[in-house]
């Protein structure tokens, strides 16, 4: 079973809660996905003191674990403040840490990310850092005390799927014992299956489900793909090779034609 900061998590699919047509559809999608963890963005919903209480109430009613995030934060200070607010609001020390460094691609500011992770871990947070597939940055995040890494596979919301599978492969190989969650960039269930086949421990999705024609149906398709990918990884998939290998041996055939 997947274990994150000592907690056993039944599902290997994590779902974001933004951009759904309505909270009802969000609830249907979460149920259909079987996700045990949902992420919640704090940044915008807390414009001012009177917060989206009703919206959060609806999310709490889903009965799944909440992983607040710092989506949309562009500086260490902003991210740290948001994380502290999230801890008070949701009563959890889990935080998905995003420090955005580039407006267009939403690429993480990895320098700020490491710095913010250090500060938050010092304060007792359990940090889930949204990072690139850079191995050196990942190493620094682990040094800072992160026990989970969340590399992107393509820019947030881009639906491109794994654009650099080799990098993901070496990321997995470099950190064999760290829970790795592919966060951002997945567009289709086949993308999710393919990163799970590489041995990633879980995936986190939002736009691909929220903006699908039928979010609940797409959530369930992703759940099946994640499950299929995981099983395939455990089963030991065949590696590609250059030469054809007949599945029926030619020599043993009764009649040659």
């Amino acid at each position: 079973m997947l274990s994150l900061y000592g907690e056993d998590i039944a599902s290997r699919l994590l779902l974001g809660t933004a951009q759904y047509p309505s909270p009802s559809i969000l609830a249907e999608a979460v149920r259909a996905s079987g996700a045990g963890i949902v992420t919640v963005s704090l940044r915008r919903e807390t414009a001012g003191g009177r917060t989206g209480g009703q919206f959060w109430e609806l999310i709490r009613e889903l009965g799944v674990r909440i992983l607040p995030n710092t989506a949309g934060c562009h500086s260490v200070k902003e991210a740290v403040t948001t994380a502290r607010m999230a801890r008070d609001l949701f009563g959890t020390d889990w935080i998905k840490l995003e420090v955005i460094g580039h407006h267009d691609t939403l690429q993480p500011d990895v320098f700020g990310l490491v710095e913010a992770a250090r500060i938050l871990i010092e304060e007792g947070f359990k940090v889930f850092p949204y990072t690139t597939e850079d191995l050196v940055v990942a190493g620094r995040l682990l040094e800072a005390g992160c026990e989970v890494l969340m590399p992107w596979c393509a820019p947030i919301g881009s639906a491109r799927g794994p654009v650099n599978p080799d990098a993901l492969r070496s990321f997995r190989a470099e950190f064999p014992d760290i829970p790795l969650i592919v966060d951002a960039g997945l567009g289709r269930p086949s993308h999710a299956a393919s990163v799970m086949e590489l041995g990633f421990d879980a995936v986190l999705l939002n736009t691909a489900v929220a903006k699908a024609g039928d979010p609940a149906a797409m959530a369930s398709a992703f759940a099946q793909a994640v499950e299929a990918g995981r099983r395939a990884f455990k089963a030991g998939p065949l590696e590609p090779r250059d030469m054809a290998v007949p599945s029926t041996p030619v020599i043993g055939k009764a009649v040659f034609e």
């Binding site: 915008r44 919903e45 807390t46 414009a47 001012g48 003191g49 009177r50 917060t51 989206g52 209480g53 009703q54 919206f55």
Partner: peptide, 11 residues
């Protein structure tokens, strides 16, 4: 479209 009941000035 922001999930909030805050009606303070535009950000």
């Amino acid at each position: 479209m922001i999930e909030s009941e805050d009606d303070g000035p535009v950000t």
